[in-house]
Design a protein around this nucleic acid. Sequence first.
DNA 1: ACCGCTGTTCTCCG
DNA 2: TCGGAGAACAGCGG
Length: 259
Amino acid sequence: MADGRVVAGKGQRALKALVGARFTGFDRRGKHLLLTLQQSGKPVGLWSHLGMSGKWLLRQPGDEPPRWSRVTFTLDRGQQLHFVDLRLFGRMRVVPRAAFAEQPVLVALGPDPLHDGIDRATLSKRLARSSKPIKPLLLDQTLLAGVGNIQASEALYRAAIDPRRPARDLTAREITRLARAIRASIDFTLRHLGKQIDDSRGRDISYVEEPAGLNPFLVYERAGEPCRRCRRQVSGAPPVIQRLVQAARSTYLCPRHQR
DNA sequence: ACCGCTGTTCTCCG
DNA sequence: TCGGAGAACAGCGG
């Protein structure tokens, strides 16, 4: 988290209330960021969601503001903390700190794979109750918090499960594989993007900016490329990654090894 | 220039 | 109830 006091907030009226506040806490549940500031000794909550195109960027004194900056916090050392969001699906709300626990959206979140781990027994019960295809179901934030369109495809690829399978048809063995694959995929993503962000920008990773033109994923946006796993394990021409649409979202899969 | 696509989520129908 | 479509928005690439 940026270490500094807010001396100005621009972009939203409620943020004026944060002038003089100091960032003191940072938490995450799924895709929700829960920031805490201290304002005259009282905690204030700042609830943020990145939507599709949102990101937080820290800029040094004198830097140009990034394109699509929607909210700017000026910190006491002249740094600018920007909430950047091209498509405006992101959200930022000032709420009483204690009210985080009462927000229906937050209360309804399923377990966060990183924060809470994945309870396979609970997951099995939920999956057994649904005839939905497993992939769109994984996007349901009340099932697991934080799994989005990329991780859903990646995890099913790793677990060798066809994204079109009805959730209730998954075996216990497959659910175990899936739970591990979700963790593995998230860990992989953090290692890769985190490392590249770190390497390309130095130590300070209190802002998140992905290097452009970089795709660390196994299947996401790789339609037409050979399946890397089958290429290693199967002789002959490897199958090609396919793209399909489920619930209006792209899914990527290997038609051979995902069953 | 048009069309389809994009890392999300909410609401409205049938 | 559930699932799918459409909406919110703005850009990019073929």
